[in-house]
Design a protein around this nucleic acid. Sequence first.
RNA 1: GCGCCCGUAGCUCAACUGGACAGAGCAUCGGCCUUCUAAGCCGGCGGUUGAAGGUUCGAGUCCUUCCGGGCGCGCCA
Length: 563
Amino acid sequence: MNVKTLLGERLQAALAQAGAAGAPPIVGPATRPEFGDYQANGALAAAKRLSTSPWELAQRVVDGADLTGIAARCEVTGPGFISLTIADEYLAQTLRGGRLDPVGGGSRVVIDYSHPNLAKEMQVHHLRSTIIGDAMARVLEALGYDVVRQNHVGDWGTNFGRLVAHLNDTGEDSEALGDLERFYTEASERFANDPAFAERARQVVVDLQGGDPQTLIRWQRYIDISMSHCQAVYDRLGVGLRPEHVRGESAYNDDLDGIAADLEAKGLVTESDGALCAFLDEFKGKDGKVVPIIVRKSDGGYVYHSTDLAAVRHRTGTLKAARVLYIVDARQSLHFRQLFALAERASYAAGASLEHHPFGMMLGADGRPFKTRAGGGTRLLDLLDEATERARRLVQTKNPALEADEVDRVAHAVGIGAVKYADLSKSRTGDYVFDWDAMMSFEGNTAPYLQYAYARIQSLFQRGRVEAGSLTGTPTIREPVEHALALQLVRFQETLEQVAATVMPHHLCTYLYDLAAAFMRFYETCPVLDSDARDDRLLLCRHTADTLSRGLGLLGIETVERM
RNA sequence: GCGCCCGUAGCUCAACUGGACAGAGCAUCGGCCUUCUAAGCCGGCGGUUGAAGGUUCGAGUCCUUCCGGGCGCGCCA
C-alpha cells in the first residue's frame, strides 16, 4: 500500500468538495516532527487560484477529508499546510515486511546498461552503468514491471579490425589472449606505428561487416574470451547479467543497410562529403553549424548512430517496450538527444518513452579520474579485489571471533556492498568522488551500517531462540520510536515507486539508511527480549529485517547473519 | 564560440521536483557499555545554498546576466 498515494486521493477528493476540483494535494513527508508524519501543501496554491483564504480552504479540506482509520490527527498548521499523523493501528496493519504491490502491471521496460567495450577487459568506468542498471532492473521487477535487460556490448567496429588483424598475425590459438589488456595494447601500438598493419586492420573491418567466415571465426574467438572476463566480473559483483542478456552492436549489423535505405526513403538523410547524414536543425555545434548524425561513413561503413537506431527499432518494435532506459554516461547526452529525435522522425519510437539517464564520472580523492592501486590502472577486477581485501582486514579487526569461512563471506558482502552503495547512494547526475577511506570507515550512510543493523536483528532472534518466520500478526505500537519505525517501514512502497519514476536509486539508499537509523533508535530505547511487549517488538524487528534485506537486495547488496 | 551538466557546513553528500526554521555522515568537542553486537546511541560546534537581479503568498529548486569547474560539438564508441 502506498500511503502517500492514498492520502493524496483522499485529500484531492476533499479539495474538490471544497471547490478546488483538480487541484493537486501535493502530499509529502512532513518536514518537521511537530508537523506529524505527512504534510499536504496543495491548499496554499489552490487558494491562490480561487482567491480565497488558504487557511480556510485548508480547514474545509481537513473537515471534509475521509481519513477514518488512516490518520489519527489531521489539522491545519501555519498559513494553510495540512499536517497528518498516521494512526498506529493503520501502520501496524499496513506492515508488509518488504513485500510490494505490483503497480507495474506487467508493463514492459527495456534497460540498456553495462554495455562494456569488449576490445578490452571491463574498466572501473563501467561500474556505474552496471550497478545502477542492475538496481533499476531489480526495483522495476519487484514492482511488477516486465523488465528486459539488454547488454549492448561494444563488440563491433574499428577497434576489432586491429584486434583481429593482430590475432591473424599472432596465430589463432594465441596464448596472448590470456592477457587481453596486453593484447589490446600491442594491437593499438602496431596500429599507430605500422602503416602496413593499419591498412590490414582497416581491411579486416570491411571483411567483418561483409561477413567473411574466417574473419568472423577469429572475431568470435576474441569476443568469447573477452565476454567470459565480463561474466566473471558480473558474477563477482553479483549483478544479474547473463549471456542471454547480451545483444551487442554486432547483432544489428544485418539491419544497417535497411536502416539507411529507410531513412533515405523518408527523406531524413542527405549525402555530405561522401557520408550519409541526417541534419536536424536543433543540434548546433562549432560555428553554429548543425552537428550531423552520421548514418553511414564515406567508406560505406556504419557507426554507432545507425546501430543504436536499429536497437531502438528492435526494442520498441520486436520487444514492444513501453519504456526504454539508457543508463549511459553523461558524455553521451548529445548523442542520445540526436538519436531520439531522429528515431521519432523515422517513426521508430512507436510511442515508447525513450529515456537517457546520464551519470557522471568516478573521480579519485584527488578529483581526477579514478585509478586503482594496482599499477594505477583502471581494471574493474582490481578494484573489486582491493575492496574485498580492505573489507577482510576490517572485518577481522572488528570481530576476531568469526570463523575463517565466515570472514570470507562477510568480507565479500561488505567489500562489494560498500563499493556498490557508495556509488548508488549518490544522486547519479554529477561526478562523484570514490574515496576508499570514506566508504571503508563504515560509519554513517554506508552499506555496512545497514548490514550491521540487519545482523543485530538476527542476533536478537538467535539469542531469543526465535524463528523469524513464525512471527506473524499485527503488533501493538506504544512508543514514539516504534511509531517512527513502523512509519518508515510503511514508506517502502512509495520510495520504490519514486525510484522507478525517477531512475534514481539513491532515494532507496536514503530510505534504507533512515530505516536503519530508526531501528537503531528503537533498539537503544526499547528492550525487546526482556519486555512485556516482546512479541510486538519482535514483529517490528522481523518487518525491519525483511525490509532491510529486501531493500539491499534490490540494490544488489547481500546481508549476513553475523558480522 | 555554441550546447549540456555541476557549484549547498572545513570534507563527502541529501533536500521526494516551488513549501514551514536547508538536513545527514566524516572531522572536531562532550556524554552513554556488569542486560538484546559501541561497525551503535544522545548532544554541542559548524550555512548570505558561487554572485547579482527577477517571477511568486513562498525559491537551494523556476527565469536572466555574470563568476568558477567538468563534459560534448563530422566519418571512434
